[in-house]
């Protein structure tokens, strides 16, 4: 029995029920899974104190491979589901995972609203610029002119820039990583979990089966680490964060793009001042009940 313990490398490998990922060999999501495990290990989070919530898609299978509470919800609905669970028990460490179709396509409305609420959630998107589980259709981050099953003459639509969308929507922690560099990714997830507020981490996680354009090699050629090339950047500078987020051509920055401290939704919700909802008493006292009736007479 390991469920009550801190998540260790061992417990991750041998869950109570051992389930191995069903991802294609070489899938970028393996790097994200191992980085998430490492980050929670570093933070010494106990398995029962953590909740991992996902939507639907290859990457959304991730909660099934982590020894923690998990919700494998509907396509696009991970963020509202996680929000409900977090508000019910804000002592839980809640990590939300999913893909670009799940988060920026069908779930984009929730993405924007979750960020402007600044809930204390960590949202890790495995962005492979394609719909993988449905066998290779264009996604909201598929690059212009990219030929996919549903864009046989090349994609005519402009891709979403998730980082800029996050910045203008009010995320208080915005970062980008590459699953080919798991140590760097793991450190960002760790920072994201430590951040009080909505942390968004967009992770380039190559699909080796359906995206032959945005490959490991393609990313390796272009990415650079912000902390290496711009060590003096102020991550709280919004304008600088926006220009950094805009850079997506021959050179693509990864690392912490933006971070600012603001009160979280949980901090400002008066009902939660009395502790987690799940611990609060049920029902109504007679005095208040009588008062509520009297007010209508």
């Amino acid at each position: 029995m390991s469920t009550a313990n801190t998540i260790t490398e061992k417990t991750f490998k041998t869950r109570v029920v051992e389930v191995s990922p069903d991802w294609c060999p070489g899938c970028g999501d393996f790097g994200v899974l191992s980085s998430l495990k490492k980050a929670t290990l570093e933070k010494e989070i106990k398995s029962h104190e953590m909740l991992v919530v996902s939507g639907i898609g290859c990457s959304s299978n991730l909660p099934g491979y982590v020894n923690a509470y998990g919700i494998h919800s509907l396509h696009g609905r991970s963020l509202p589901t996680a929000t409900g669970a977090k508000l019910a028990n804000h002592n839980l460490k809640v990590v939300v995972t999913g893909g670009d179709g799940d988060g920026f396509g069908i779930g984009v409305g929730h993405f924007i609203h979750a960020m402007r609420r600044n809930l204390d959630l960590t949202y890790v998107v495995m962005d492979n610029e394609i719909y993988g589980l449905t066998t290779g259709q264009a996604s909201p981050t598929t690059m212009k002119d990219h030929k996919t099953k549903t864009t046989p003459r090349g994609n005519v639509e402009q891709p979403i820039n998730p980082l800029m969308l996050a910045l203008v929507s009010g995320a208080t922690f915005v970062a980008r990583a590459f699953s080919g560099q798991p140590a760097h990714l793991s450190s960002l997830i760790e920072q994201g979990i430590a951040h009080k507020g909505f942390a968004f981490i967009d992770v380039f996680s190559p699909c080796v089966t359906y995206n032959k354009l945005n490959t490991y090699a393609w990313f390796k050629e272009r990415i650079y680490k912000l902390e290496d090339e711009a060590p003096d950047r102020d991550p709280a500078d919004f304008s600088d964060a926006m220009s950094t987020a805009m850079e997506f051509d021959d050179r693509i920055p990864i690392g912490l793009v933006y971070k600012v401290e603001k009160p979280t939704y949980e901090d400002t919700e008066p009902v939660l001042l009395n502790g987690p909802l799940i611990k609060q008493p049920l029902g109504i006292k007679k005095e208040l009940f009588d008062q509520l009736l009297l007010e209508t007479m």
């Binding site: 909740l51 919530v53 919700i71 919800s73 509907l74 609905r77 509202p80 589901t81 996680a82 929000t83 409900g84 669970a85 977090k86 508000l87 019910a88 028990n89 839980l92 409305g109 929730h110 924007i112 609203h113 919700e269 008066p270 009902v271 939660l272 009395n274 909802l277 799940i278 609060q280 008493p281 109504i284 208040l288 509520l292």
Partner: peptide, 30 residues
């Protein structure tokens, strides 16, 4: 009456969010 009754009330962006919020909270145990 949210505060005096101890009920957390959340207006959401649409009804899809609403039901998923409610299910998330129900799952957690309230």
């Amino acid at each position: 009456n949210s505060e005096r009754c101890g009920v957390l009330v959340k207006q959401a962006e649409d009804e899809i969010a609403v039901i998923n919020l409610a299910i998330g909270a129900g799952y957690a145990g309230v």
